[in-house]
Amino acid sequence: MPGAARRGGWVVAGLGTAAVLLAAAPLFLSSYPLTLLTQALIYAIFAMSLDILLGYTGLPSLGHAAYFGVGAYAVAILATEFRAGFWTCLVAAVAAAILAGALFGPLAIRAVGTYFLMITLALGMLVWGLAFRWVSVTKGDNGISGLERPTLGPWSFADPTAFYFLSLVTFVVSAACLVVVVRSPFGMSLMGIRESEARMRSLGYNVWLHKYLAFMLAAAFAGVAGFLWAYYNGFVSPVEVQLVTSVEALLMVALGGSGTLVGPALGAGLIVFLKNFVSVYTKRWLLILGGVYICVILFAPGGIIGALKRRPR
């Protein structure tokens, strides 16, 4: 199959160029665009984690911000109240997100389609309610502020460039893990479930367990993104767990192309870009964003990556 090999070559070349560009970005970007690129990387991890559910398992979650937020709050509380360090916070953020996923998963994955959407929405609002009302722990509406960037051994991530590299490394590691997962037999079974749950069940697969594991996996990486997000902003507030954050992540996945991992990362970058650069020139940027979505849905239902894949080679 020479065609496939050539295509594989292009993929490697493309990813390689992207990696070089991203690694070299601090050399030619001033601090503000660099912080935005950092933000795009964090959102990319978040969107890719959602893609495991939406794109690979066929479970459209409207409450994914819950795990992102739980991770972020875990970091904020540990770092401000207990002066916890980098690794403690990372482990705690991921553990808290997995725990939330483990608790919510059984409730959510009983349903499919719209019902899954609604249950995850409700569970997401539950976490938001906790963040908003449990004032003694979360500081309520004002949020937790005064979070300092972490240090790791000899490195301090206070500097925007250092923090950018931390985010980049985390992004690359997360992306690699997720790629390994989706290419594994487990990932294949997830796609099988997406295509036909009944057939997978009749083939003897434990569909429930697969879904449950996928749910916790997605929650874990959302927690990783939340971990970075808390340090990136230096504060956490209930807005992080609001419905809009979940919706934004869904849109990133849909825009880039679900079930591709590269697509959601690209979608995240595009949305951060639109939000922060287009809004400088017009306050009607939401209109432009809306227009882009309508075009994607009408002309490229598979997202940007989906549209590219469909082209004849």
Binding site: R7, W10, V11, A13, G14, T17, A18, L21, V262, L266, I304, I305, L308, R311
Partner: peptide
């Protein structure tokens, strides 16, 4: 895929 690269 070349186009993906282009967009990136």
């Amino acid at each position: 895929m070349r186009r993906t690269l282009g967009i990136v």
